[in-house]
Amino acid sequence: MTVRPLRVCVFGDSFVAGVGDPAHRGWVGRVAERALAELPVDLTVYNLGIRRDTSSDVRARWPSEALARFSREYDNRMIVSFGVNDTTLQNGTLRVEPAESESNLAAILDVAASRGWPTLVVGPPPIADEQQNARTAALDERLAALCHAHTVPYLHTFSHLVGATSWMREADRGDGAHPGAQGYTDLADLVCADITAWLGTSADSVGGRV
């Protein structure tokens, strides 16, 4: 069996980086481990999460970081996940307005599509702050609608993790935002099947390799 060389860049914030996980695996490491066990691929996953990054920060840095890791001989994919830092108040104002968050994601998706890099988006999770969660929930729906218009898969996490969940309990016991190992395991459980199925599909069938 031919082993497909698959390279995946995961761009985002501290939740992508796995901040709070004592094993430093986060949801990205857990999903990568399971996907590698299930798929006949030569898989390399680059975790490119940066703490406090907003959608504007990711938009500014992602092209050069992807180009440094991708090659025409690979099946190159991108996973993008941000939003919580966009909805954070700084000096009384949002760090990124919702319309700008949408514009940032649209620009990322358009450039990725033009390069033939299939993209999947993981929505922002909740934190231990009800007021910010209301803003994040609204942004989550806006980003999902944008992805639908771009025919890009969007995986909701907010509605599954908010409430009486391990994610929220660990975030509340920690720094108010980041969970521990169980919270990241629960998020990985939410998205793993969809991400693995997407990675297992040929690039041509998911809009890649133009």
Rank of each mutant, 00 (worst) to 15 (best):
T2S: 05
V3L: 08
R4I: 07
L6Q: 13
R7S: 02
V8P: 15
C9W: 05
V10M: 07
S14H: 09
V16T: 03
A17D: 10
A17G: 07
G20L: 01
D21C: 11
D21G: 13
A23M: 10
A23V: 14
G26L: 02
G29L: 06
G29W: 10
G29C: 00
R30I: 04
R30L: 08
V31C: 14
V31E: 14
E33V: 14
E33S: 14
L36G: 07
E38L: 01
P40D: 12
P40A: 10
V41C: 14
N47I: 03
L48H: 07
G49K: 10
G49A: 11
R52I: 15
R52H: 15
R52A: 15
D53Q: 06
D53R: 00
T54E: 08
S56E: 08
S56I: 07
V58A: 02
R61E: 11
W62K: 09
W62T: 04
S64A: 14
S64Q: 12
N76E: 14
I79L: 01
S81Y: 09
N85Y: 06
N85G: 01
T87F: 04
N91G: 12
N91I: 11
G92A: 04
V96L: 01
V96C: 08
E102C: 14
A112K: 02
A112W: 00
R115E: 06
P124Y: 15
P124T: 15
A128Q: 08
Q132K: 09
A134N: 01
T136D: 00
D140E: 07
L143F: 00
L146F: 05
C147K: 03
H148D: 11
T151F: 01
H160S: 05
H160E: 01
V162S: 07
T165R: 01
W167L: 11
M168A: 11
R169M: 10
E170C: 05
D172K: 15
R173A: 14
G174R: 05
G176T: 00
H178L: 07
P179Q: 13
G180Y: 02
T185N: 13
A188Y: 04
D189T: 06
L190Q: 07
T196M: 05
W198M: 03
W198G: 01
S202N: 01
S202Q: 02
A203K: 06
A203V: 12
V210C: 05
